[in-house]
Design a protein around this nucleic acid. Structure first.
Lengths: 338, 338
DNA sequence: GTGAAAGCGCTAACAA
DNA sequence: TTGTTAGCGCTTTCAC
């Protein structure tokens, strides 16, 4: 394992110059930079991150904190963030805060604060003021995804607008009895996503002059099974059956499709269905949905972070609203005439 | 940010004693250990991982390398590994080698070798001998999941045995025309999982004295869609239609269920279907499947690793064969009488 | 544009 | 059982 001294000797310069040439900080002539790079290459020299970190206070390591990993959304965001960080020479240290409260606080005190990371990305995590302050006191930039976090730059989806778009799509097709399968109260912890989507749904109905009917709103748990059950209930009543369903996730939307099939209803002929996410399975079910782009969300968070670390100078001001997009496929059409 | 010196002063001991008391290495009397711990607690002292790493050569950080993250299997394994590592005071640094070859080699030279990690867990990754050697030369323990990696302790599923079990289940129910939807050649890169499962399937048939019929074997891409298409082909032929299908993943099995439904066939009355994985969706489709336990696989890899790092002294010799289990649900039954 | 040298904050001999 | 002290391998002033 070659050290900086060997590289210096081989290149005929001092260790200080090697450090400057390789890190890009400070003035080095092009000629010596080349000499140094060659020497380093020949020796297979790689800086010791511990030594460099100790001397400089920078670790080139970013902590990414998630509430769970084994779910399409989170693993995709992390994937995007990791790639973007790697491209910029940063490592990604992963913290899964899924566990109990003790584990959570231990992560904060013993891990994040251990001078191990230069910055933190918090995904869909409602951090306490104390936690945010702890990071700020250490001068560690923090950016959130799925905010808002007080005093923290946070990228977030406008869930109200997203739900309005989905609902408006159904309205524009002529539907007047539009049901909604949302998340239950228990999912409202992280940033009130379920209630925001419900509000958007209601706003779109009101905007179209349609009555909001509480019997057309069911809550589920964002899973296939939950969507299936809720849809069975909604589609079961023969008289007042809705002609369209807006489900707050693709999984629930697919559950609704299967429920409709099991009831002998045809999608979209008898019921139109819209989801949210555009997961891998959506095309298979020909599901109309609102796409969001978790990988790009991770990348965008990294851009903001690197700007705060002074690594990147963004050309345009950051847009903290995350993009989403209506993808019209085959599960929505005009309502049946009766 | 309090340093070790302040703690030493407050506890009335030397910095060396503080280090010993907090790390658990070397002799310290219980009395002084308590004094030190109190002092550290009051000051909110946390060791600097860079300084400690530089001085000791240990980072308490493990690199976890995956070929992709946004897939149930990989994110679950990583989740399990991360939790286990955290419990033992280790951080998890994630490397996604999904990208191109250049990125891959860069991860090895510039990241893993940067003295940043104490050890590496490689998940479903066929490392080259050079890569393995590079790690060994640095005395960094390496354990694999989904091997075999030459010269590396590797936890792996016995895919042949697993496929035999699935197929034998169908045989035992009386099926004689059993189809198989496996992975294509292009998935054979990582450890020949598809061909191993196919061999197990064939062995079970032969063991039962049944003929192996190549027309009953289809390859797909492990997705819902792939399984759907393959199943349509298999179930389309009216005369020689198989009465059972063993699909090499739950996703493909669920695709097969949907294909059967679309053809007007009843599952399991007309066709029995078995998958592999026991994903979250399997219970919803009442799918008989072979469960594997990715979270526990991650934990098991950590156990092996910690033993190599001398952190853990395993009571029993490690079982490098990963467990799997037949979960019988509602998609398998006796073949229809004709 | 480059070099000398003083740390960065901790750990591990070694001595006591 | 504890203290003294010499590094660990870099980065970064400060001179030149």
């Amino acid at each position: 394992m070659a050290g900086i001294e060997e590289v210096a000797r081989r290149a005929g310069v001092s260790t200080a110059t090697v450090s400057r040439a390789l890190s890009g900080r400070g003035y080095v002539s092009d000629a010596t930079r080349l000499k140094v790079q060659d020497a380093a290459g020949e020796l297979g020299y790689v800086v010791s991150s511990t030594a460099s970190g100790l001397a400089s206070g920078r670790t080139r390591n970013v902590g990414v904190v998630v509430p769970m990993l084994s779910h399409w959304y989170f693993s995709s965001v992390v994937e995007g963030a990791e790639r973007a960080l790697l491209r910029h020479g940063y490592d990604t240290t992963l913290y899964n805060l899924g566990g109990d409260a003790a584990e959570r606080s231990s992560v904060f005190t013993h891990f994040l604060l251990r001078k191990r990371v230069d910055a933190v990305i918090a995904i869909n995590l409602e951090l306490t003021t104390a936690e945010v302050t702890a990071l700020h006191d250490l001068d560690k930039p923090l950016v959130g995804i799925g905010g808002p976090l007080p005093g923290v730059p946070t990228l977030a989806l406008d869930d109200v607008e997203l739900a309005r778009l989905a609902t408006a799509h159904l309205v524009s097709l002529g539907h007047t009895r539009i049901a909604h399968i949302g998340g239950g109260q228990e999912f409202d912890v992280d940033f009130h996503l379920p209630s925001n989507r419900r509000h958007g749904y209601e706003q779109a109905l009101e905007h179209a002059g349609l009555a909001v009917d509480a019997t057309l709103v069911r809550s589920a748990d964002f899973t296939l099974q939950g969507g299936y059950r809720a849809a069975k209930q909604l589609l079961g009543s023969p008289a007042d059956r809705p002609t369209a369903i807006f489900a707050a996730s693709d999984d629930m939307a697919i559950g609704a499709i299967l429920a409709a099939r099991d009831l002998g209803l045809s999608v979209p002929h008898d019921v139109s269905i819209v989801g949210v996410d555009d997961t891998q399975q959506a095309p298979f079910f020909d599901l109309t949905t609102i796409a969001q782009f978790p990988r790009r969300q991770g990348e965008a968070a990294v851009d903001v972070l690197l700007a705060e670390l002074g690594e990147l100078t963004p050309e345009e001001p950051t847009d903290f609203g995350l993009p989403f997009e209506l993808v019209v496929r085959g599960t929505t059409t005009r309502p049946p005439r009766d």
